[in-house]
Amino acid sequence: MTIQKEPTRTGTIMVQRSRSAGRVLIQSGTIVALILLILFFFAMRPDTFLSFVNIRNILYQISILAIIAGAQTIVMVVGDFDLSVGATSSLAGAVTSVMLLGENSMPIAILAGLAVGLLVGLVNGVLIAYLHLSAFIATLATMTSVIGLAYIVTGGTTVFGMPPEFNELGQGKFLNVPLPVYFAVAISVLIWALLRFTTLGRRLHAIGGNEEVARLSGVNVRWARLLAFTMAGFISAIGGILLAARLGSAAAEQGGDNTLFSVAAVFLGMTVIRSGAANLGGTMIGVAIIGVMSNGLNILGVNAYVQQVVTGIIIILAVVLSGLKTKER
């Protein structure tokens, strides 16, 4: 009997170790992927990739995406997603730019752009939380309408010629680091603190974990969901205004790519923690992966269309890994 039990026990231990290794791989796969990307591009371009100038360029490139992805994280914490964040950022940047060209003061123009983001987020929240539309349908419809409004605002052209003090917000530097990087860090810290330490943050996580349990626990689910989408719209507007300042121009769809990139970043980040839930820290790792990949491929001279294919594959892998984490829960 002892001879028969020993192989069974050994086999069980091996299976358990295999499962543990699988969990560790899923748990740390995103971080490992980031490290491997950095090592690969460094090996390919050791004289360029990890230079101060290039690291600064990466941070500069991902700063707007980090803000938009932060907005997306808030919505995905409650179990939804927002397809309109990129369009909202474009409209906010366009409204701000057009108002500046109309000789309005910079504070008034920026407030108008922020108000646009707030309004779009509020509309999304009402449609989803109170009229019970699916997040996909509601934000897809909002995205389409907002893009149309952006074309109306810009007249279908690229708007440029904003005052230098506005462009300074996106092009200026402090301690040789671009200002948008500081904005991205500050906004990310605020979102992290909101989700981790506030009552609202705990309620948002509770809704994302189990909406019915959260409701039975006394959480006003509709109000919390409304706030999540409203905050996402407002934060997206900040990103759009900074993007217009960085480019020195505004166009109807110049922030459109950030929608899919933000979703990909959040899905990548969901694999970082054991619960498999959306989290700001993980999202920033996802943003870093996208930024490093894009920058590295550019340095290697890879065609932009190939980069789109690679990005699509990353999104698929992110969703698959996120699904595995959800099953693990």
Score class of each variant (00 low, 15 high):
73 T>A: 13
131 L>P: 03
305 Y>P: 00
104 N>Y: 11
173 K>A: 09
60 Y>S: 15
214 A>D: 09
2 T>L: 13
89 S>G: 15
218 G>R: 07
62 I>F: 01
169 L>Y: 01
27 Q>L: 14
178 P>T: 12
218 G>I: 06
175 L>F: 12
215 R>T: 00
101 L>N: 04
151 Y>I: 07
41 F>V: 11
237 A>L: 11
38 I>G: 10
137 I>D: 03
313 I>V: 15
97 S>G: 09
306 V>N: 02
21 A>E: 00
32 V>P: 04
287 V>H: 03
20 S>V: 02
119 L>W: 01
319 V>I: 13
256 G>Q: 13
137 I>M: 14
5 K>N: 09
220 N>E: 12
228 A>S: 15
85 V>T: 06
236 S>T: 06
21 A>R: 10
199 T>Q: 12
9 R>Q: 11
222 R>T: 14
250 A>L: 07
148 G>F: 03
180 P>S: 08
84 S>I: 10
202 R>T: 08
187 I>V: 15
191 I>R: 05
80 D>G: 11
11 G>H: 04
53 V>F: 14
317 L>T: 10
149 L>Y: 02
121 G>A: 11
276 G>K: 05
326 T>H: 07
282 G>T: 08
168 E>N: 11
305 Y>S: 14
58 I>N: 02
32 V>Q: 05
92 A>M: 07
241 I>V: 15
232 A>Q: 02
60 Y>E: 09
